[in-house]
Design a binder for these strands. Structure first.
Lengths: 357, 357
DNA sequence: ATAAACAACGAAAACGTTTTCGTGTTGACA
DNA sequence: TGTCAACACGAAAACGTTTTCGTTGTTTAT
């Protein structure tokens, strides 16, 4: 087992100085062709690779970006990571992931761990607990330390940074319009509690669509699930709630659910109660995951394009990192700086499958 | 925007030496209580955190482990990552992920990127292309450079290292036995090409179970899917193949599929052909993912416990890292070292749901 | 009174790079 | 022959730590 070879060892072996080796390897004009050849050959032979850590220390940047997401076993977040990794790698960056597990404390711990020099910037989606507490000081603190953040999906006004979101509002609008245009008169909504911004926005889209269609919203037709406990296993609770919901609203002929789990569960319950899909009840979900595609009947959904979100977020972050590098941001006025934060909106797309007419 | 504060700045500000600051912060007995107090207070005030990169360089270890998996948008791999991250964080390590995307070249590029000092060790699952090429030199090369590797799930004899696998063989055995014990006489197998080791092992389990049950295996009852192209969208191809399979084997009364996608698709096709599940045909899949749980009927599966695999892999790797640290492995004989590589087998579990009797 | 012990601190090396700024050796040219 | 580039290379600083080994004063024991 040979330890990785260093410049120093090459220098010693070839009886030149470290500087000479470094220059020769980078092809500097300063070094004679003879020695350059010799050094490069030797380096190749021993498979020399510069030590990333030393480079990071010297350059004061690590060329890696930190991701913190609430949960990785989740199709949407996985696709976002895939997108981030894709452009990060293409642009010479690595990706290091932390999981907050929807916990405020774990989010902070993870951020502190990574902010200690391991990364150049963050891409993250806020945990539910943090949203509930509305405590965002750790985000602003790291931003103030000069470390850029890009927020995606679950974003918040209190943090001033680049953001990538989905047009939740328009997405829901499209979905509910689809239901209306295929004849639904009593459209139920299955959503989450309001503190998750995406849930709130999707609810608004639903209401707006009804209003546009001259239909009065009925509070009984809105089912809010307390998902603070829907981790796993609470599937039966979900089913029961939805079943009660259907039973107390016999006239429902369409359902819009703010995620695919709710939608698929709604289909299951509906079928159990004897409804035909899409004949008696049509269903549309949000988030085009693996469940939607393989459910029976396959589910019409609003696709969020998670990968595109990830790609865009990575591009935004890296752009900013490399901008700072060139512009020596220390001398830019506070006021100027805050103005050019972008919020990119990724368009949703209605993917029509067999759960609608 | 204040840059992160360093020991040097604290030293300058408080008019002491860098060494004094360092010692005071680590609570060394060498420094008087007065100065210690003063320095610690100052450090807290300015929110000092030691620079990880500098520490990594000094200690020659990064306290981060590299994961390389073929695909992240995949329930099984996500759960493995979750397991790795869990114990890694608990033991003070970070996790940096690379995606090979089932490509040989990308696997190598990713490994080289990370092996350049960014990480202390690898946890990885081999890409399909690599398995097909049977070229494992990059794994052995990094191991020879002194960087430990733990292989999981898709492992291979040619690489000498710690491994964590699932008892694919016994898992299949259990599954097929279950089908036999509930009265199936003609059990079909839907599997992958042989070069993926897990597919091969699961096939062997199937054959063994039939043999134990005194049933002659019938080659017509085995459907091998070429999954080199099943990325996405080739779903219809899969459905067609399975449909042909069913049609040319009218007497099938049970199906064992080596992954949940095949199993769910088989259920879909079967139902389309008018079979009742589980009355006419029973189905069992492998990999307990989100599809199995929410399919209709819910799918009986062999659970691989991905999270447990990840946890175990991380423990193995970190154990080895910290062992090397204490034992100064340079002086251990070659022969001695190779002997204590472990292969841990994670037991599977048959989760019975509604697709079997 | 003097050596020894101790307390409190600083200097410097080391980790592996890159880069700036010398420095000595050539050759050409006046 | 003396001056000046050009050439080829080396020394050293810097990135931010930790740690070993001094180096001071001050106290204790003899």
């Amino acid at each position: 087992m040979k330890r990785k070879i260093t410049l120093k060892q090459i220098a010693k072996e070839l009886d030149v100085s470290i500087s000479t080796v470094s220059k020769a390897l980078s092809g500097s004009k300063e070094i004679s062709e003879d020695t350059t050849q010799k050094i490069q050959a030797f380096a190749k032979l021993y498979n020399y690779r510069p030590n990333n850590i030393a480079l990071s220390l010297k350059n004061r940047k690590t060329k890696t970006i930190g991701i913190i997401i609430p949960e990785i076993v989740h199709h949407f977040f996985s696709t976002v990571i895939r997108g981030i990794e894709l452009v990060a790698n293409k642009r010479g960056y690595n990706v290091i992931v932390g999981l907050s597990n929807e916990s405020f404390t774990k989010e902070i711990i993870n951020m502190e761990m990574l902010a200690g020099g391991s990364i150049d910037g963050f891409i993250l989606s806020i945990s539910k607990e943090t949203l509930l507490k509305q405590d965002y000081h750790h985000f602003n603190a790291t931003i103030n330390q000069g470390m850029p953040i890009v927020l995606f999906d679950r974003v918040v006004n209190e943090v001033d940074c680049d953001k990538v979101i989905v047009d939740d509002f328009k997405g829901s609008l499209k979905a509910v319009n689809k239901l209306l245009s295929t004849g639904c008169k009593n459209i139920g909504l299955i959503t989450t509690m309001d503190y998750v911004s995406v849930g709130r926005l999707r609810t608004q889209g639903y209401l707006e669509a009804l209003e546009d269609g001259k239909i009065n919203a009925d509070a009984n037709l809105i089912l809010k699930i307390d998902d603070s406990l829907d981790v796993e296993g609470h599937l039966d609770v979900l089913e029961n709630e939805i079943e009660k919901f259907f039973k107390s609203n016999k006239k429902i002929d369409g359902v819009f659910a703010v995620n695919e789990l709710y939608a698929v569960t709604a289909m299951k319950v509906a079928r159990k109660l004897g409804f035909k899909i899409p004949d008696d009840i049509q269903v549309i979900g949000f988030t085009d995951g693996v469940l939607s595609k393989h459910a029976t009947p396959s589910l019409t959904t609003v696709s969020q394009h998670g990968q595109k979100i990830g790609e865009k977020a990575a591009d935004l972050l890296i752009d900013r990192l490399e901008l700072e590098e060139s512009e020596s941001i220390d001398y830019i006025e506070e006021t100027e700086r805050n103005e050019n934060f972008k919020t990119v909106i990724i368009e949703t797309e209605l993917i029509e499958r067999d759960s609608t007419k």
